[in-house]
Computed example of a mutant assay.
Amino acid sequence: MQILICDDEQTARNHYRSILQEICDEKEISAGFTEAEDGDHLLFDMNDIVKSTDIIFMDVGMPGTDGLETAEKLRENGYGGEIIFLTRSKEAVFYAFDVHANNYLVKDVATQERIEEVFLKAVDTVVEKQSEYILLTGVGEYRNVPVMEIRYFEIMQKIVTVYYGDTSFEFVSTMGKLENLLFARGFVRISRSYLVSTKYIASFSYDKVIMADGTELPVGRKYYKDLKVAMKGEKDE
């Protein structure tokens, strides 16, 4: 479990890190912690964070790029982890829904019990996501593939190849079936031949996407709008 605390106040970062570490020790949760002093520093390392961070505790009121805008940019770039806002105003909850935040904590008000409740709920969500598998049938072989590790599917002459982790696997299916199965899990069709996890898209343009590992995949003209919607989380006007 990788946890990042983003807050422009060092005392706040120390405070939450100490409490979260204590909870992890008590509940036997294996966790690593990183920190960012503001949204601009966090976004500088955005690609690494999108790929490796499970839970982000995000201060809302930071100088420069505030927490809400930082969260929006993370979502636009495929971050699918849990975001918990740290705020001095309960009104932030109304904006939290726009970036699919897991929850929020009011600074100087939230008790240790409240922090533990919110944190453990986020941990449960992460564990549930990581435990999701898809059963794929190859030639004489079955394979349970973790959905969170899948970068993309490629189809050529009715054979589908799934690329995940540091390996790949060939099986028989249709892109339509996979698209229906995985649409709600952050996948988007970018051409007749490719179904891609938005989590692993580093950047995209009208004619291609660049994956986090540097792989370039073509974008079909009629699929660009759906790609743009999936990456922005909202439909074009």
Rank of each mutant, 00 (worst) to 15 (best):
V209P: 10
D7S: 06
D226V: 04
G81M: 08
G233K: 06
T215N: 03
G138I: 14
V172C: 03
S191C: 01
M231R: 04
G80P: 08
K232S: 03
K177G: 06
N14F: 00
E234K: 09
F169C: 13
G78V: 03
F85W: 13
D45N: 11
K73Q: 15
L4Y: 02
K208T: 03
N102M: 13
V60R: 03
G214P: 12
K208M: 11
Y206F: 14
K222D: 07
H41A: 12
D54N: 13
K73L: 14
D207M: 01
T125F: 02
S89W: 04
D66G: 08
Y79V: 01
Y133A: 00
E170M: 09
Q21H: 13
I23Q: 06
K121V: 00
D25Q: 14
G64W: 12
T167E: 14
Y194H: 14
E26F: 09
S203P: 02
R13A: 04
D7Y: 08
L181P: 00
I19F: 12
I190Q: 01
Y200P: 11
T70N: 08
V123W: 12
G39Q: 09
K158Y: 03
V99Y: 06
V229S: 11
V118T: 15
T34W: 01
D8I: 05
A36T: 10
E154M: 13
E76F: 03
L136A: 06
E22G: 13
N47Q: 14
K228Y: 07
D124N: 13
K177W: 03
L178M: 13
G233D: 11
F204L: 07
R189F: 00
K232N: 13
R17S: 04
